[in-house]
Amino acid sequence: MTDARTEAGAARRGTETDDRSPGGAPTAEAAEPEAGAAEPVDVAVRERKAARRELTAAVLLVLAGAAVVLSVAGRTWAEGTALVHGSHIAVHASGNTINKATSALALLGLAGGLAILATRTVGRTLIGALIALAGAGVTVLAVQGARDTSAVDGEAAKKAAVEGVRAVDVSHAVWPWFAAVGGVLIVLAGLFVVVRGRRWPGMSNRYEAPAGRGAEVRRGTATNADLWNALDRGEDPTR
């Protein structure tokens, strides 16, 4: 009976020894479950990279729209001729002369585009709505400016130094429509932020995570939030 128990114990010890490498580490077969644990981390990394690309695209869209609006706002949007004592005086009006709010709203959208880098979740959604409203305002004012003649009349009265003088042969340039396109870009960026902005990373995340999170992530015991925070700190959770 004693010999039977001794042989059984030796067989069990032999099985445990076979499952380990000569150095006592688990063999490749025993380590297979741990290899599968890296898959959620890889998914989190891909999602994080995609979110950063979306954030970059939204900021660039706002910057592009605001740049277009501001670059054409100072150009001549309308021009005409004032008749004063039989003489023809050329008059013109820029976008800022027609309505200064166009540039102001573009600057507001630009500031909002920078603000989405420093905000998160609900705050970022509100910023996105503000950006969209600013872009809509730019678009409306630009379309109105493409038909406006009152500013040219005002410039005619100033040059003639006579009240009631009106401009004739008024024509409009294409610049208001460029401004309208810029406004549409700002609107699209704002709506993009509203719809997708909650999942984008924030600029301040890397300063908020407690110490030791990186090791916890690498051990595979962290939650999805820990994985995202580790990426914000510049750590690679797959290592």
Score class of each variant (00 low, 15 high):
202 G>L: 10
222 A>P: 04
113 G>C: 07
24 G>V: 08
220 G>T: 10
53 R>N: 10
41 V>F: 12
114 L>G: 15
190 G>F: 06
37 A>I: 05
140 V>K: 01
64 A>Y: 13
102 T>Q: 02
203 M>W: 00
159 K>D: 03
17 T>C: 10
3 D>E: 14
225 A>E: 15
5 R>T: 12
176 P>L: 05
119 T>P: 02
156 A>W: 06
233 R>A: 02
8 A>L: 14
66 A>W: 07
1 M>Y: 05
134 A>M: 05
100 K>I: 07
201 P>A: 12
195 V>K: 04
131 I>A: 00
100 K>C: 02
64 A>P: 08
94 S>N: 07
147 R>K: 12
172 H>Q: 07
13 R>V: 11
142 A>S: 13
65 G>Q: 04
203 M>P: 00
87 S>I: 10
45 V>R: 03
5 R>H: 07
6 T>I: 04
185 L>S: 03
3 D>L: 11
217 V>N: 01
80 G>I: 05
54 E>L: 14
9 G>A: 15
182 G>E: 08
77 W>K: 09
77 W>Q: 05
192 F>T: 13
4 A>H: 01
97 T>V: 06
82 A>C: 14
158 K>W: 05
36 G>Q: 05
2 T>C: 03
16 E>I: 14
214 G>D: 12
29 E>A: 14
12 R>W: 14
63 L>A: 13
88 H>D: 15
70 L>C: 06
98 I>D: 11
89 I>F: 11
166 R>S: 12
176 P>H: 07
129 A>M: 03
98 I>K: 04
133 L>Q: 05
112 G>D: 02
123 G>N: 11
50 A>R: 15
233 R>T: 05
195 V>G: 04
91 V>F: 11
215 A>N: 00
62 V>W: 04
209 A>H: 07
26 P>E: 02
224 N>S: 09
219 R>I: 00
45 V>P: 01
202 G>D: 02
190 G>V: 12
226 D>W: 00
